[in-house]
């Protein structure tokens, strides 16, 4: 059993928002969230915008205080001021001083870790090569595209060769090629033995690289576990198109909780979705026995993290 390198227990955070009155409005951003990140895994912290992902990450980076709960990173309990030495952090939509070149920026962050000059120079060359920005290393960062900035951000997060990488929305705003490149870099860091915690609302990417995930909604963890546990490989998603149903038939479908209605119109045309371990034949013969002649199309696909996410969102 792997040891947790990040352990968060019952973490709660309330923001105070000052309006026109002297009394602040309180907004509970995190409701006692609990999850562990194990050694050398890629952990996806997923959820919609405003779910509490960035708040959790800011607390982990000791940028904002929290109300209650326990946090430990690599066995050190918060508030430990030396924790940053073992962490590499990429904030959401990072900004780097646009008057600095990439090389200068990396050197600046490296100096904050007090890395010896020779080691720092070697590390900078290695990281520039890793993120594929050799030709831009002496270009001022004000001229960088969003993708280049994101890659530069990853390079600065790796400057201290950290044991843990915490990445806040590292793939957002990137084109498919940029996302693929960044995914590959994250995977390469796992191969080097690092642990990665990253937040995202792009579920396809998370599905491709994560070992385990936690889905957070309105400050609560609503689902967590390994992708294998959460999406059993035998599960299938069926999308069934039906036409000319009468009102009784429509009601019958609506009454069956296993069906999610994706489309319906006044002519009795319906598109429904269901997640089953059974075959299409079984669904038609058992659940839709009396409407077999009204089925015009059945699509079968393997469920994705997005399907799971949507299901959980609907349930909660």
């Amino acid at each position: 059993m792997k040891e947790p390198v990040i352990s968060i227990t019952k973490l709660a955070k309330t923001y105070k928002k000052y309006g026109r009155t002297p009394f602040p409005k309180r907004f509970k951003a995190l409701h006692e969230i609990t999850f562990d990140v194990l050694e050398n895994e890629i952990y996806g912290f997923l959820g919609q915008n405003g779910a509490g992902k960035t708040t959790t990450i800011k607390i982990l980076m000791q940028l904002i205080p929290y109300d209650s709960g326990n946090i430990s990173i690599l066995g050190k309990y918060f508030p430990d001021t030396n924790i940053q030495r073992d962490i590499g952090f990429l904030p959401e939509l990072p900004y780097f001083y646009d008057f600095l070149t990439l090389k200068e920026m990396l050197s600046l962050y490296g100096r904050l870790f007090e890395l010896p000059k020779k080691r720092l120079d070697d590390r900078i060359e290695y990281l520039i090569d890793l993120v594929g920005l050799e030709d831009q290393k002496n270009v001022r960062m004000g001229e960088f595209s969003k993708g280049m900035l994101q890659r530069s951000g990853l390079a600065q997060a790796l400057i201290n060769d950290p044991a843990i990488l915490i990445l806040d929305e590292p793939l957002s705003g990137l084109d498919p090629v940029g996302r693929k490149e960044l995914r590959e870099i994250i995977l390469s860091q796992k191969k080097q033995g690092k642990t990665v915690l990253f937040s995202s609302h792009i579920l396809q990417d998370a599905e491709m690289i994560c070992d385990r995930i936690a889905i957070v909604k309105q400050g609560r963890v609503i689902l967590k576990g390994s992708l294998k546990e959460l999406i059993p490989p035998l599960d299938n998603i069926f999308e069934i198109h039906l036409m000319n149903l009468d009102s009784a038939e429509t009601r019958m479908i609506e009454d069956q909780n296993c069906f999610e209605i994706m489309f319906s119109d006044k002519y009795g045309n319906l598109i429904i979705k269901t997640r089953e371990t059974s075959s299409a034949g079984e669904i038609i013969n058992i659940r839709l026995k009396d409407m077999q002649d009204k089925i015009i199309k059945i699509n079968r696909k393997t469920p994705t993290l997005e399907d799971l996410f949507m299901e959980k969102n609907r349930e909660d």
Binding site: M61, F89, P91, P94
Partner: peptide
């Protein structure tokens, strides 16, 4: 938000 990257280092 450049402060996030700075204060996440041992500064």
């Amino acid at each position: 938000k450049s402060i996030y990257t700075l204060l996440s280092k041992p500064l």
